[in-house]
Computed example of a mutant assay.
Amino acid sequence: MADAGHSPAEYVTHHLKHWASSHDDAFISVEAWHFDTLLVSTVLGLLFLTLFRMAAVRATSGVPGKLQNFVEILVDFVDNAVKDAFHGSRDFLAPLALTIFVWTFLWNCMDLIPVDLPPMIAKHVFGLEYFRAVPSADMSATFALSLSVFALIIIYSVKGKGVGGFAKEFLTHPFGAKLLPANIVLNTVELLAKPISLALRLFGNLYAGELIFILIALLPWWAQLIPGLGWAIFHILVVTLQAFIFMTLTIVYISMAYEHH
């Protein structure tokens, strides 16, 4: 619920600022470190590793527990998704896809926490003025993840085709060697569009979701239940879908880069 001392504009602005190394009021800054994004991402990553480690240690060939069942279903689901799209060794790509899906899903789930709770805890417990708890609503986080995928696209393209094959495809596809400048422009745009679209799609959906939750919090407390609950239920679908889309596009992009054309 909005603080009585804040105007609606001040309330929204306050909730959209990061615990950062500097505040220059820019929508995106390449100089400021967003400590809240780094902290929440690290904690969620450790949570993911801990749960899956526990499932691996407690795995049994007898009657599996609920955690083992859940992890096995998730691993099979991701492995089948990789198997359907990628025809090389899955030793690296399947764990990568699993990590991206679960980690991004956990990022997105932070959007379902009441918007006033994380900054209130950060202020009263740690004395922080600003704190945002949704890493995927931070463009720096989504671009960091998409740039990692971009690097893997280049690596797998060279791995699948060789340096010469990658260069030949980049310079001569799709119009042939006679239109080399046009090929370079077209392939550069196509290559750069992949990480940009990955980052902006995830950021845009979760930023919009966070903003709507903040706007709902501006309503009187007795008017928040129905719109808040309705949007939270719908947002569960968005949270899962965006994690799945990011994982699927990662698999598809790396598969396209690895195969010969």
Rank of each mutant, 00 (worst) to 15 (best):
L49W: 13
L47P: 09
F86I: 04
W107N: 01
T104H: 12
I121A: 03
G65V: 05
V57M: 08
L44G: 09
R53I: 08
H18V: 02
V82G: 08
E72N: 14
I73N: 13
P118Q: 02
F27A: 13
H15Q: 04
A26R: 12
V40I: 11
L38P: 06
R90Q: 11
L96A: 15
K17T: 10
S29K: 06
V40D: 00
P95R: 13
A97E: 01
V82F: 05
P119L: 00
A94L: 04
A81K: 15
I113R: 01
H124I: 04
V40Y: 01
V57Q: 10
H15K: 03
S21L: 05
K66Q: 13
D36H: 00
G88F: 10
L46Y: 11
K123P: 05
A122K: 00
V75F: 08
W19H: 10
V102E: 04
L93I: 15
D24W: 06
Q68T: 08
H18Y: 14
K66E: 15
F101E: 02
A56T: 07
S41L: 02
A55D: 05
A94P: 05
V102T: 07
F105G: 01
L44P: 06
V71H: 04
T50E: 11
L98T: 13
L46E: 05
E31M: 08
L117N: 00
V43H: 00
F52A: 08
K83G: 14
V102H: 02
K66S: 14
L93K: 03
D79V: 11
V102Q: 06
F92V: 13
G62N: 06
A56I: 06
H87E: 11
V43L: 08
M54G: 05
H23W: 12
V102F: 04
H23C: 06
D36Q: 01
V78G: 04
V115A: 07
H18L: 06
S22Y: 07
P95C: 04
S41K: 02
D91H: 11
V63Q: 13
D116L: 04
W33A: 15
I121S: 01
P64K: 07
D79M: 06
D76Q: 13
T104L: 05
A20C: 09
G65Q: 05
R90L: 06
C109P: 06
F92W: 14
S22M: 14
D111P: 04
V30R: 13
D24E: 15
A85T: 12
R53D: 12
G65S: 06
F35R: 03
G88C: 09
I73H: 15
A32H: 09
V115D: 02
F70Q: 07
H34D: 09
G127N: 04
L67R: 12
L106Y: 01
W19N: 01
F101A: 10
L112N: 02
V43E: 01
F77P: 02
P114W: 03
E72H: 14
K123H: 14
L67A: 09
K83A: 15
L93D: 02
K17G: 07
F101P: 00
R90D: 09
N108V: 00
V57R: 15
H87A: 09
